[in-house]
């Protein structure tokens, strides 16, 4: 790894000052993506600002019927949290299937959302459950947050403080894991929200997206298999062609919907 300085602020304000003061500073959350990147010498941040011990960024609250999860809350904490399990069991289940147990003990929701890996799990839940990403500066609807693969609406130095989700019992996350990495080769988060179907797709290769034609087809009682699916959302690689990813999207969506009933 290249050299950097490590900072561990105790408060959000302190974190903001550190990020402002240090050029090339990068927020560090669970580090489950960042550490391998640093080990591979693929990034050269001048400073890391560790957010994981800022109490205000941790834990789960209910606010006006929405589930609010602090940015530094780990996947394991979300998976085990009684409120998440009660108000959105599918979200708890998703968190409980990210990576592996060790990763879930360190990785955080804020880190996952801010990184926006095109094969990550959380972004699909964000889109399907009408999430709002809260930062130290503003609140961004999920629909506007995930702009492209590995890119978000976050400005330099902006910190994800929490994500709020609509409570939802009619939801299911169906993941087809990459046989090697176990990331989502394709995964679909399906939800019925306010009487309408939501289908959010991750793993396609270009970044998470909502399959609106599929949602409309379901809501009109049409066959999902025939619903148009934009090929431009998908890429092929050594694990799966575009065509196969498109097919898997339909299968995962159907399976997720079948689980909702």
């Amino acid at each position: 790894m290249y050299d950097f300085t490590y900072h561990r602020p105790a408060s959000l304000d302190e974190a903001k000052v550190l990020i402002d003061e240090n050029e090339d500073a990068q927020p560090l959350s669970g580090g489950q993506t960042l550490m391998p990147v640093l080990r591979a010498r693929l990034a050269m941040p001048g400073a890391l600002v560790d957010l994981t011990r800022i109490d205000a960024l941790r834990g789960v609250n209910m606010e006006g019927g929405r589930i609010v999860i602090g940015g530094a809350t780990t996947h394991a904490e979300v998976a085990q949290n009684e409120q998440v399990r009660e108000h959105c069991p599918a979200l708890a289940a998703l968190a409980g299937e990210i990576g592996d147990p060790q990763v879930r003990h360190r990785g955080t929701i804020g880190g996952s959302v801010a990184n926006n890996d095109p094969a990550a799990c959380y972004p699909s839940a964000c889109l399907a459950l009408d999430a709002e990403v809260r930062t130290d500066r503003r609140t961004v609807p999920a629909a506007d947050f995930f702009t492209a693969m590995f890119e978000t609406a976050l400005e330099p130095g902006e910190i994800v403080t929490a994500i709020s989700f609509a409570a939802c019992h009619d939801a299911h996350y169906e993941k087809f894991p990459n046989p090697a990495s176990r990331f989502a080769l394709i995964a679909v988060f399906a939800a019925r929200l306010g009487g309408a179907t939501r289908l959010a797709v991750t793993g396609g290769g270009t970044g998470v997206f909502r399959w609106q034609e599929g949602e409309q087809a379901v809501d009109r009682g049409e066959d999902l298999a025939a619903a148009p699916l934009d090929e431009g959302r998908f890429t092929g690689d050594l694990h799966a062609s575009t065509e196969y990813r498109i097919h898997l999207t339909r299968v995962m969506a159907q399976r997720a919907l079948a689980r909702i009933g």
Binding site: P179, A180, S181, F183, L238, H239
Partner: peptide, 11 residues
């Protein structure tokens, strides 16, 4: 080598 890590080589 395209499958040059455990991310891409199916162990």
């Amino acid at each position: 080598l395209m499958s040059a890590s455990f991310m891409d080589y199916g162990m």
